[in-house]
């Protein structure tokens, strides 16, 4: 989990009443996140099933429980 989120989680659990201090790391983290997301979207473009239209059309299951 990215550091920013970890911080948010910790603050919620441990220091609920303590004010969150502005942190110089946060801006970097946001940039990191965007880079991360871009890399991930590149990856999705590569691994998404080809011929998605035909694939989702033909994905037919029998109803189960």
């Amino acid at each position: 989990m990215p550091r920013e989120k970890q911080q948010e989680y910790r603050d919620h659990h441990i220091n609920e009443n303590e004010e969150i201090q502005p942190n110089s790391e946060i801006k970097d983290n946001v940039d990191d996140l965007t880079d991360d997301l871009d890399a991930l979207l590149d990856e999705i473009d590569e691994i998404l099933e080809e011929d998605s239209e035909e694939f989702v059309e033909n994905f037919i299951q029998r109803g189960g429980q």
Binding site: I44, S52, V56
Partner: peptide, 19 residues
């Protein structure tokens, strides 16, 4: 269809393909 594919592929169990 690519958006619907993304939804389905979120659940794909293959480690290299599953989103």
């Amino acid at each position: 269809s690519r958006v619907r594919m993304l939804d389905l592929q979120y659940h794909d169990l293959r480690p290299e393909k599953g989103l």
